[in-house]
Design a binder for these strands. Structure first.
Length: 585
RNA sequence: GUGCCCGUAGCUCAAUUGGAUAGAGCACCAGCCUUCUAAGCUGGGGGUUACAGGUUCGAUCCCUGUCGGGCACGCCA
């Protein structure tokens, strides 16, 4: 058999059904032919529910239609038999020889088996994490990172041309607050003490950055501390401030006092934080093609440009000294401010410019991965796209629910500002990259995730990742003991793979490309995780019931060919999820 | 109060998006190492899919209502 032209069985069957439909149907009723895998062996390998769908338009009972379709269907060398079952299902039984023949295909494609061209090379962008560079990444960001990276990998494997992007919020007030926080800590190192604002960044990493400046420049950035509390209430000398207004006044004072030097502080904290993120994410197996600066949107005039376009389309108006976008025209609950009374653009304004820019860069589909707390933001961004005459359906928002941390059976507090959180780095150090990555994508992204730290730390066999990795390691171990040339396995006589376990494994291997395609289509990398666990389960069962290194050479090589194929699929699948496939455990 | 998401075994989660008898893992019970790694395997009990209606050949999935949980309702990001 020519292995390079092996048909995708689902596509093959749907083509057969299409030809049957063309024979049976005279009118051109709109139909969609869905071929699904069956759950039970007695129902064959694949099923089609078309006859039930056609019952109403044809005014006939489904079983009768099913019989007609089967009779009209061209013969296929791949099929053992086709049956009508249940209420009108058409069940397809695939010949064992076809399943066995797939093994050659898998062995030949190896590290690329499972990849397909469902995406047809369409340019797609995945923007994820995009956390404010104002403090270390925590376990909440970890979920977005794991989900986004896995989704991007899956999309890539499904034939899309994927760009992974991180949007850096380097332009806003939060960065000013971090710069101020760092400078105040630095002043303290120089014995200039001001009560540290309650709503500034409290974390230790702020003190670390302050120390960095102090060690390199001593008191170089201590200027006129007496003016620091200008315009603030008298109490600010004794008690820490805690209102937004007071904090903004402090920032303004800092900018005035530091002058040109403010940019140095601002830039240093940004560089430090981004460097830390990049390193942290890299060790988590997450890398980006583009780090896109929000500030660059202002510097390159893209925000002004976007605002001008909206203005031309009469989508902006002035009220109470601010500039508003008519998002209610596009289904939002209320209109939104794009430029504040003080002249500053809002985050929303730069976000409009950013999304306009994404489509200007030629992406056919743009995926944003957001925390679930941002869901109220969707309608205004899509509204803005619509106002700019872009198709809002080309922007897909994948909301990732929060990961709630449990320690000693109790909820762990999570607050970035107060510095009370478990960092992603700590999580990795405690449970390992692989367990963390797998754990994160074991759940559907729109489900809340209970992250039990004690369980994850325990390194016990409750961690599902070990189960899959162990299957991989066992195969490597067997192949090492065999110590033969893997090339000979391509010529193995796969007709000898006839026991139930082996045929089930073959079918699962055949399913792998379909799983990747479904995961890409549904933005559901968890399907890959579940698939891998099921494959590992079937393999472990096989391993326990059947000996591979048997004296009969032909039988041994057939079995080794099978487990080699499993080895490839486990490895390829784990790679999509950012999990290592160790050869020994 | 209004909007969005969610509610499935004791616990944590699936269910090919409307398909056949709702499945796994933990936990619990009983077995399997003289044999390629026991981080494994085999068997067992566990369910009114929160509740009540509706739509149709068929509903965990779609619609309405009730209850319960999360999130969002800024000239913050």
């Amino acid at each position: 058999m020519n292995t390079s032209e092996l048909p995708n069985l689902k596509i093959h069957l749907s083509q057969l059904m299409q030809q049957a439909v063309d024979q049976v149907m005279t009118s051109d009723t709109a139909i969609s032919i869905e071929i699904t895998r069956t759950k039970q062996a007695s129902h064959g390998d694949y099923a089609c529910n078309l006859a039930m769908q056609l019952a109403k338009p044809l005014h006939k009972n489904p079983r009768e239609i099913a019989t007609m379709l089967i009779e009209a269907m061209p013969a296929s060398p791949s099929l053992e038999k086709v049956e009508v079952a249940g209420a009108g299902f058409i069940n397809f039984f695939i010949k064992n020889t076809v399943k066995q023949a797939y093994l050659y295909h898998i062995l030949q494609t190896g590290s690329t088996y499972g990849f397909n061209d469902a995406g047809k090379g369409k340019k797609i962008q995945v923007e994820f994490v995009s956390a404010n560079p104002t403090g270390p990444l925590h376990v909440g960001h970890g979920r977005g990172a794991a989900f986004g990276a896995s989704l991007a990998n899956v999309l890539s494997a499904a034939g899309y041309s994927v760009t992974r992007e991180y949007y850096v919020n380097d332009a806003g007030r939060q960065m000013d607050i971090l710069a101020l926080s760092t400078w105040l800590r630095y002043l303290a190192l120089n014995d200039v003490h001001v009560p540290f604002p309650e709503n500034a960044y409290q974390g230790e990493y702020v003190k670390d950055m302050a120390r960095l400046i102090y060690q390199a420049h001593a008191d170089r950035y201590v200027h006129e501390p007496a003016r620091l509390l200008d315009g603030l209430p008298e109490t600010a000398h004794e008690t820490a401030v805690n209102t937004d207004e007071d904090l903004d006044q402090l920032i303004a004072n800092a900018k005035k006092i530091l002058g040109q030097d403010y940019a140095y502080i601002h830039n240093l904290v940004l560089t430090e934080q981004l460097g830390d993120f990049r390193n942290d994410l890299m060790e988590f197996g997450v890398e980006f093609d583009t780090w896109f600066s929000e500030q660059s949107l202002f510097d390159n005039g893209l925000v002004a440009h976007a605002m001008q376009l909206l203005e031309e389309k009469k989508q902006l108006y002035r009220q109470d000294g601010a500039v508003w976008f008519r998002s209610t025209d596009f289904g939002d609950e209320k209109d939104r401010v794009v430029q504040r009374e003080n002249g500053q653009f809002t985050y929303f304004a730069s976000d409009i410019a950013y999304h306009l820019n994404k489509f200007d860069r030629g992406f056919e589909t743009v995926i944003n991965i957001w925390g679930a707390d941002h869901h109220g933001y969707i309608s205004r961004v899509k509204g803005a796209l619509q106002a700019l005459q872009l198709d809002p359906d080309k922007l897909k928002i994948a909301l990732v629910q929060f990961a709630v941390l449990y320690r000693d059976g109790k909820k762990a507090p999570m607050s970035t500002r107060s510095g009370e959180f478990v960092t992603l780095r700590e999580l990795r150090q405690e449970v390992g990259k692989d367990a963390a990555r797998f754990f994160y994508v074991m759940r559907k992204s729109d489900q809340h995730l209970d992250f039990d730290l004690d369980l994850a730390k325990s390194q016990s066999n409750e961690n599902p990742v070990y189960y899959v990795q162990y299957a991989h390691a066992r195969i490597c171990s067997v192949l090492a003991q065999w110590d033969g040339d893997p090339a000979v396995l391509v010529d193995a006589n796969t007709d000898l793979l006839t026991i139930e376990n082996e045929l089930a494994l073959l079918q699962q291997l055949i399913d792998f490309p379909d799983t990747i395609e479904a995961a890409a289509k549904e933005f559901s990398p968890h399907l890959v995780a579940f698939y891998l666990r099921e494959l590992a389960s079937e393999f472990h069962s096989y391993y326990n019931s059947t000996h591979f290194l048997v004296p009969e050479i032909a039988l041994m090589e057939a079995r080794l060919a099978l487990i080699t194929a499993i080895h490839h699929v486990l490895k390829n699948g784990l790679k999509l999820l950012g999990v290592d496939a160790p050869e020994k455990m």
